[in-house]
Simulated assay, not measured.
Amino acid sequence: MECSEAELAEIAAIRAEGASIALDDFGTGFSNIARLRAMPVDRVKLDQTLIADIETSEEARVVVQALVHLIKGVGCSIVAESVENAAQADLLRAMGCDSVQGYVYAGPMSENEFLSWSAHHVPASRSAA
């Protein structure tokens, strides 16, 4: 989140060439909501610490919903990281997250494992898929 104007210009130039820019782990550490509107990004990935309690904590849901509105308001799409189960995925989709990733679909795997998995995987019947 802390970039010089020259670095921001370089990122914007890369984006203008057709690259899609994502901001990872948003919501913790050096995240700065005010700075988000000036960043040349297309996608924001919500940090796993924001997702962990959304099934059981109203406060967690309120925070995630507010971030979804803010991020959508600056024109970015949203990816929720480390989604563990279908209930979390369903909540995130209902809140407006564009994509979810995590163990709800599959664990980490090598390229060869992924190619094999994707060739044989039949999506489960989930409202989040």
Score class of each variant (00 low, 15 high):
Glu84Pro: 01
Arg15Trp: 01
Glu10Asp: 13
Lys45Asn: 07
Gly27Arg: 06
Val63Arg: 02
Met39Cys: 10
Asp42Trp: 07
Cys97Met: 08
Val100Ala: 04
Glu17Asp: 11
Ala9Ile: 04
Leu70Thr: 13
Thr28His: 07
Gly27Cys: 04
Glu10Lys: 11
Ala38Pro: 00
Ile14Tyr: 01
Leu67Ser: 03
Ala94Glu: 14
Val122Leu: 12
Tyr105Ala: 11
Ala60Lys: 00
Gly27Gln: 07
Asp53Ser: 06
Ser116Asp: 14
His121Tyr: 15
Ala16Asn: 08
Ala22Leu: 10
Met39Gly: 09
Gln88Val: 08
Gly29Ile: 13
Gln101Arg: 02
Ser127Gly: 15
Ala119Met: 12
Glu2His: 15
Asp42His: 13
Tyr103His: 12
Ala60Pro: 01
Glu58Gly: 14
Ala128Leu: 03
Asp42Ser: 07
Trp117Gln: 12
Ala80Val: 03
Glu58Tyr: 09
Ile71Asn: 01
Ala38Trp: 03
Arg35Phe: 02
Ala129Asp: 14
Pro108Gln: 15
Ala6Asp: 13
Pro123Met: 09
Ser99Pro: 05
Ala38Cys: 07
Ser31Met: 02
Val68Arg: 02
Leu8Thr: 06
Gly73Asp: 04
Ile71Leu: 11
Asp24Tyr: 00
Ser125Ile: 10
Gly27Val: 04
Val74Ile: 15
Val62Leu: 14
Cys76Ile: 09
Val64Phe: 05
Gly107Asp: 09
Asp42Glu: 14
Leu8Trp: 03
Gly18Cys: 09
Leu46Cys: 06
Ala52Lys: 13
Glu10Met: 10
Pro40Gln: 06
Ala60Arg: 00
Gly27Leu: 00
Gln88Asp: 01
Ser99Glu: 10
Glu81Val: 03
Trp117Val: 12
Val100Cys: 12
Glu113Ala: 15
Arg35Glu: 05
Glu58Phe: 13
Ala80Gly: 06
Asp24Pro: 04
Ala89Phe: 03
Ile54Trp: 02
Thr56His: 08
Val44His: 00
Lys72Phe: 00
Ile78Leu: 11
Gly18Lys: 03
Ala6Trp: 03
Asn112Gly: 12
Phe114Gly: 09
Asn112Phe: 11
Ile33Gly: 04
Tyr105Ser: 11
Leu36Ser: 05
Val83Trp: 04
Tyr103Glu: 12
Ala6Ile: 11
Arg15Gln: 11
Arg37Asp: 04
Ser125Leu: 14
Leu8Asp: 05
Ser77Asp: 04
Val122Asn: 11
Phe114Gln: 04
Asp25Val: 05
Gln88Leu: 03
Val83His: 02
Ala6Met: 09
Ser125Tyr: 08
Ala89Gly: 15
Ala19Val: 05
Pro123Gly: 07
Trp117Ala: 14
Gln48His: 10
Gly73Ser: 02
Val74Pro: 00
Ile51Ala: 04
Glu58Trp: 10
Ile71Glu: 01
Glu10Cys: 09
Leu92Ala: 03
Pro108Glu: 14
Ile71His: 04
Asp47Lys: 05
Gln48Arg: 13
Cys97Asp: 02
